[in-house]
Amino acid sequence: MPCKCLLKDGEPLYDTVAAYLAALPEELKADEKTVNMRLAICEKCDCLWDGICRKCGCYVQARAAKKDQRCPHEDRNW
């Protein structure tokens, strides 16, 4: 079954997300506290599969990093 976990440093896909985050303009980024709060919620969510949000098809760490994003789940978890 899929792992309910975020991508970790050292995994090949983590580099893809890290590159995306590095290229994201600072003004679009959410603050660190917000990102951590979002990711903590995602880690408890059944829609998290191997670092991917099955609701929106995004890498969770990529979606959570943007200021103007919101949880795509109909329950609006964040």
Binding site: L13, T16, Y20, I52, C56, G57, C58, Y59, A62, R63, K66
Partner: peptide, 10 residues
């Protein structure tokens, strides 16, 4: 689309 999963073709 940026940030979307490889292989999902979004």
């Amino acid at each position: 689309e940026l940030g979307s999963v490889d292989g999902f073709l979004y």
